[in-house]
Nucleic acid binder design. Structure first.
Lengths: 208, 208
DNA sequence: GAGACTCTGTGACGGAGGTCACAGACAGGA
DNA sequence: TCCTGTCTGTGACCTCCGTCACAGAGTCTC
């Protein structure tokens, strides 16, 4: 049980014994819309993506799950009995610890560290999703793309994503992303290459 | 202290003493964006509305707070220390019980009923806001308006709202609501009057 | 190098809906 | 009754962006 996560370490021994770890390849589906969740995943390494899809097949990322975090929608479903309202997939290779649903529900009330972990994450996600509503409702695609690049690039300004992947993140189409990025390139804000974007002028992008 | 709400009743006496009640007129602002919250409100009667606004002044309702519920964003802010990320106002005359911030933070860890109240509400709001993201991202305004009318009309199919108020709820403009309602009226789905909409053909509206 | 994919670039087109500018209907005082 | 403010209806216009249809460039494998 290589849990090594504070909320899991705080579990009583018997509960810790029930934790299993899994490895997922990029693109592997973790949860489908309508699923009954059977365990609460804690991401140990890699990153997972939770998204919705439209009737016409477009996707929109709700949030990403980083190492140390767990899927709060799953926790919410387990405690409320509702089915999972979105899709979750591995965005990179993912290692995750799985806490069985019944053990989670039983220990949730008893273990303060677990409760606080779930509660804190839930509050943060709510805030993030509210920001997302705001952006989708009030900002143009180019503004949202500029913001997305600025927030998701690494320290060198580099971001390894295809236009298709960026479109899925923003809930728009690939062509719109291609056009917009080309415009950003013309303005000298980014450099484009196959499968990646590199920010050249972060302030231009941010002040947009 | 006419609390009469389970989570408040469960508080230790000393904490219950600190609860005060307030009456608010419709339109009264409860929280502003960026506010530091000083107390956690529990709605006793009436309804409050939590919304965001765009740079151009359009509004978008995130959710409504019914009697027995409290403002979960406030709870989240109190526990995390973040400023309030939206606006809240009384949609009708509102009576609310106010639990001072310091008392809430202190008793939150100790009182299971309070914790469960907040947790359950937080989980439900997250689900509701995710549905909202989905609707804003993937549905047309007419579809969202049809859904809104069906979900918010009373048992007689009556809904007392101006077009302006409906536009604020959906995050669109008054003209668009007027045009769309007129089209619904032409199809025999609703009857329009100054300040109200009455559903005539609920199934037509729902199957849209 | 040939072929097969994947990824990107771009023009054309159309629909949804936001904005502006009014006009007229309704309601509540004074 | 008149006046004023609020609410609704509507046409014109324009922007954003989703979709379709390709073309061409990169990359990988055999």
């Amino acid at each position: 049980m290589p849990s090594s996560l504070p909320p899991l370490d705080a579990l009583p021994d018997e509960a810790r014994q029930s934790v299993r770890t899994v490895s997922l390849d990029p693109g592997a589906l973790i949860c489908l819309e309508g699923d009954r969740c059977v365990s609460l995943p804690f991401v140990l390494s890699g990153e997972a993506r939770v998204y919705r899809t439209s009737a016409s097949g477009r996707g929109l990322t709700l949030y990403r799950i980083a190492p140390g975090e767990s899927c709060i929608l799953t926790a919410s479903c387990l405690l409320s009995g509702h089915p999972f309202p979105a899709f979750a997939e591995a965005a990179t290779p993912v290692e995750a610890a799985l806490l069985p649903a019944d053990v989670f529900v039983r220990t949730f009330a008893e273990v303060p560290a677990l409760r606080e972990h779930v509660f804190g994450l839930l509050a943060r996600r709510l805030g993030a999703v509210i920001e997302l509503v705001d952006a989708v409702a009030f900002l143009r695609v180019d503004e949202r793309l500029a913001r997305y690049l600025a927030e998701n690039a690494d320290t060198n300004g580099h971001l390894a994503r295809t236009h298709e992947a960026l479109a899925e993140a923003l809930g728009t189409s690939r062509e719109v992303v291609s056009r917009t990025l080309k415009e950003f390139e013309r303005r000298g804000w980014v450099a484009l290459a196959r499968g990646s974007v590199t920010i050249q002028d972060a302030s231009g992008l941010r002040n947009y």
